[in-house]
Measured scan of single mutants.
Amino acid sequence: CHSECLGNCSQPDDPTKCVACRNFYLDGRCVETCPPPYYHFQDWRCVNFSFCQDLHHKCKNSRRQGCHQYVIHNNKCIPECPSGYTMNSSNLLCTPCLGPCPKVCHLLEGEKTIDSVTSAQELRGCTVINGSLIINIRGGNNLAAELEANLGLIEEISGYLKIRRSYALVSLSFFRKLRLIRGETLEIGNYSFYALDNQNLRQLWDWSKHNLTITQGKLFFHYNPKLCLSEIHKMEEVSGTKGRQERNDIALKTNGDQASCENELLKFSYIRTSFDKILLRWEPYWPPDFRDLLGFMLFYKEAPYQNVTEFDGQDACGSNSWTVVDIDPPLRSNDPKSQNHPGWLMRGLKPWTQYAIFVKTLVTFSDERRTYGAKSDIIYVQTDATNPSVPLDPISVSNSSSQIILKWKPPSDPNGNITHYLVFWERQAEDSELFELDYCLKGLKLPSRTWSPPFESEDSQKHNQSEYEDSAGECCSCPKTDSQILKELEESSFRKTFEDYLHNVVFVPRKT
């Protein structure tokens, strides 16, 4: 048989008469490798580009789960590009990614509803959504962080984005990388972005840091009482949809009607710091009717980097990364020049730590249904340095008659930039024990000054392991946590139920 035959053949030295091919099969003959313009397919066939392209389009058009959109890589027609490569849609070739590779997620039936953290986790790592997304989240724990972890990498949506009755959302900033909504599939009414009845939605994105392009379709905003109209108009300008909307697409009466839409800028007039305090004062603000001013709200939190936005980490279910302080308005003076500047002394802060701070007014709604208010920009203030805590785990070892090696770990709280350490030492008198000992005694162990690591005695271990207080009263049991108490109650309830079950099964009433 021919060298490319495997198993047997019907005619000697003829690659077209093989029972099976050793390498690849091409047009009725066995070959060692697939010549151009053919590609290896499933490690035994040679196919042309049209064959591989037909497989790709067949799966793409069917949208069946589990099928493969075949691509070409290293002269092979394979189910998908290997790690580190992405497909070129024009020629199906796998090309190296520039940075992290995109991950295209194809949605069944063309859309997916995100109504819980669990459903959001199914899209973790996706960068391109081939379909439409509907966000409908009523509640949950730590929602802002969970949504950002699972949806934060999405850069492109081919269909539309719909935010509907998501009472738990305060902001859409968890879509931190969303840059493009194509609108290839539109919501009824030709809408590519749809926001309806979101009672706590206050911000779409921080438009000073976020760009969003909507290729096709219109915007729809109705019944978002805490979303200011200025935020919607800003989205029109940034996304390129200005002029597409009709009169009733953006409701003037049901958007922002319960919001404090600040239209003035508060400026800080005085800032002073110490290692654990920050004193702030800002310019006074009074609405047209000074009785509408209820006070100020001061927001602050630790910020290692200057990239904080107002609604980071917030949701309507209680999660809030900001510390909020309510401040009463100052006494009002008739003389504008003698107006008191409101302020606040922030206490209990960490030394040498940068804080993000902003302040906003708290006002009631005027009778004319106009909203007044003022808010400052987010500023960054760093507390002063102070003395560091003591170095940890000092170790001293003498390696000769004239040297001592000293080692330690950095302090747990540096409280500033540590530039150097101060080492103090003092000579001590020799131990009298060394002169009084009889060095001729056998088995004498000389006193040693070398360091030995501390260890816990058996008594201390027994005390720590004991669940009861000892007789001397030195140790006591740790208080039980809520989960331990709940577990004990469940076990007790189970024992009672099981005992009742045994009584009912074992003891049967005697027939009379």
Rank of each mutant, 00 (worst) to 15 (best):
K112G: 09
T113K: 12
T113A: 09
D115M: 03
T118F: 12
S119T: 05
Q121V: 05
E122R: 12
E122T: 06
T127G: 05
G131S: 02
N136H: 10
N136R: 06
G139V: 15
G140Y: 08
N141I: 08
L147C: 03
A149R: 06
N150V: 03
L153T: 13
I154M: 10
I157M: 08
S158Y: 10
S158R: 09
Y160K: 13
L161W: 00
R165T: 15
A168K: 01
V170W: 05
R176T: 12
R179A: 10
L186T: 08
N190E: 06
N200W: 02
Q203D: 13
L204M: 15
D206L: 07
I214A: 07
K226I: 07
L227R: 00
L227V: 08
S230Y: 01
H233G: 02
H233T: 14
M235I: 12
E236P: 02
S239R: 06
G243M: 05
E246R: 11
R247S: 10
I250S: 08
A251V: 09
L252C: 14
K253P: 11
T254Q: 15
C261L: 03
E264C: 04
L266W: 01
S269R: 08
S269T: 08
T273W: 13
S274G: 04
I278K: 01
L280Q: 00
R281K: 12
L293C: 08
G295H: 12
P304E: 09
Y305I: 06
N307S: 10
N307D: 07
G313C: 04
A316P: 14
N320I: 04
N320V: 03
N320K: 04
W322N: 02
V324W: 12
P329E: 05
P329M: 06
P329Q: 14
L331G: 15
L331D: 14
S333D: 13
Q339F: 13
N340H: 10
H341F: 12
G343E: 15
P351H: 05
T353G: 01
F358W: 08
R369C: 09
Q382R: 11
D393V: 10
P394Y: 05
V397K: 15
S398P: 12
N399F: 14
S401N: 15
S402V: 15
I405N: 13
K409D: 07
